[in-house]
Design a protein around this nucleic acid. Structure first.
Length: 200
DNA sequence: GCTAGGATGCTCT
DNA sequence: GAGCATCCTAGCC
């Protein structure tokens, strides 16, 4: 098996909706000691600052959302509902806020580690939601601002089966759990994947 | 199988 | 003080 290449910064430095779609099938990889934990992305949501009332950046920069305004290709991690962390990838040219929320992965590498972190045994329950996957991968606020374009702690790489049996269909819908901007169908997911987030 | 409600604490008004 | 880009459990309403 060839080593997949890490996505360069230019991958992230464009329209958030395009980046969101292109991220489906890419590998989110977390280094824990000598182990690699993660798998391909199967569900994402796009958030932009301008003209998107659901975005954290809609009302301007704050201490929490500052990373969204910065360099693309970095992680934006925030704490929510008193218990959970959500992982985003920063998009758009620097100064223009945007991010893609990673909502679900297919567990592929380090599955025993994810089971230990999550305290569940079903692979369909390991990473099938934004709060679940950060817990499975051991991602917390210390990952806010981490550069995704090197192999240090957390990075993103091309899929293992690019163009060879790795084909999939993309579907879209409105975003989950947001009260505003219901008109925007900015959630993208791999059609028919059994690893999508639950509880629609 | 299903759903309603609670947990839990940071962020912004 | 209200709301939140969530998840789990209790209860079968």
């Amino acid at each position: 098996v060839s080593i997949p290449s890490v996505l360069p910064r230019s991958f992230y430095q464009e329209n958030t909706l395009d980046v969101a779609r292109k991220l489906l099938g890419k590998l989110v990889l977390r280094r824990i000691g000598n182990c690699i934990v993660g798998g391909p992305i199967v569900e994402v949501e796009a958030y932009k600052g301008k003209e998107d009332a659901a975005s954290h950046a809609f009302r301007g920069m704050t201490q929490r959302n500052a990373v969204m305004f910065g360099e693309p290709g970095r992680a934006y991690v925030y704490f929510t509902y008193g218990m959970y962390y959500c992982l985003n990838f920063v998009t758009e040219p620097e100064g223009q806020p945007g991010a893609v929320l990673i909502r679900a992965l297919e567990p592929m590498f380090g599955i025993p580690i994810m089971m230990e972190n999550r305290k569940v045994t079903s692979i369909y329950d390991l990473t099938s939601g934004p709060g679940k996957l950060t817990k499975a991968l051991g991602i917390d606020l210390t990952f806010n601002g981490v550069d995704l374009t090197n192999r240090a702690k957390l990075f993103v790489a091309d899929g293992l089966k690019e163009g060879n049996g790795g084909a999939f269909a993309i579907e879209r819908s409105t975003r989950v759990g947001v009260r505003s901007a219901k008109d925007k169908e900015w959630r993208f997911y791999v059609k028919g994947s059994p690893f999508l987030s639950q509880r629609r």
